[in-house]
């Protein structure tokens, strides 16, 4: 049984990653990854919300009428997000301000509702909590990688510490303005998905439409 619980925790890291396999929560991943510290805080916030919402929804799962279950789940998630937002405002005000609206928008993050509806409604509280934490960490893992690439290439720094000296300050590094714009996260996430699926071909989906192959030899 312990092995199974361990699996619940670690499989979402790469094998069933919410961002790279289920393609959920892309919106916030574009917004909060311009620097590593915001990505880290967002990871912690989402992991807490996911873990606690897993426990709460799982405990209530046998008392919830089917017709209003989504409303109750969202109410639980929203209350947890408000708590996280208040904690950030109380103890980490500066970084909370930089994350701005995106902490509040964890409510609409598809991963949270997806795990509540897809896992916590059918499993016990402990399993649900581990699943939530695992998914939060899987989401955070991608966030941290994207954040590191974007901050390093966009500012030349990591966690705000200057590592590569830009040309304007006499160094040899030219900052890529592209990396500070949200679309760059799309490209980086796409590359991460490409890399993972190359290592794990079982994640590749079957094409919906097969193009007939025609080699140049046929045409001649």
């Amino acid at each position: 049984m312990a092995g199974k619980r361990w699996q619940t925790l670690v499989v979402p890291l790469i094998g069933d990653n919410p961002l790279t396999l289920q393609i959920l929560g892309i919106c916030s991943a574009l917004a909060v990854t311009t620097s590593l510290d915001t990505a880290l805080v967002m990871t912690i916030a989402v992991t807490c919300v996911l873990g606690m919402s897993g426990v709460s929804v799982s405990l209530l799962r046998k008392h919830l009428p089917r017709s209003i279950r989504i409303i109750v789940q969202i109410t639980i998630i929203a209350s947890l997000v408000i708590i996280v937002d208040l904690v950030l405002k109380a103890f980490f005000f500066e970084i909370g301000k930089r994350l701005s609206v995106f902490v509040g928008l964890i409510v609409t993050n598809c991963i949270v509702l997806g795990r509540a509806e897809g896992f916590a409604m059918r499993n016990g509280p402990l399993d649900s909590m581990l699943d939530g934490i695992g998914n939060g960490l899987g989401y955070g893992l991608v966030l941290m990688v994207v954040g590191a690439i974007r901050e390093l290439l966009g500012h030349g720094s990591l966690f705000g510490m200057q590592i590569l000296l830009p040309v304007s300050k006499g160094g040899g590094f030219e900052p890529l303005h592209l990396m500070l714009l949200p679309p760059s996260a799309f490209f980086i996430i796409a590359c991460i998905i490409w890399f993972i699926r190359r290592k794990r071909p079982e994640q590749i989906e079957k094409p919906e439409f097969q193009v007939r192959l025609q080699t140049r030899g046929e045409q001649k």
Partner: peptide, 10 residues
Amino acid sequence: AVVQISFPAA
């Protein structure tokens, strides 16, 4: 386009 966006003031 990527060169234009990445190095706006180069």
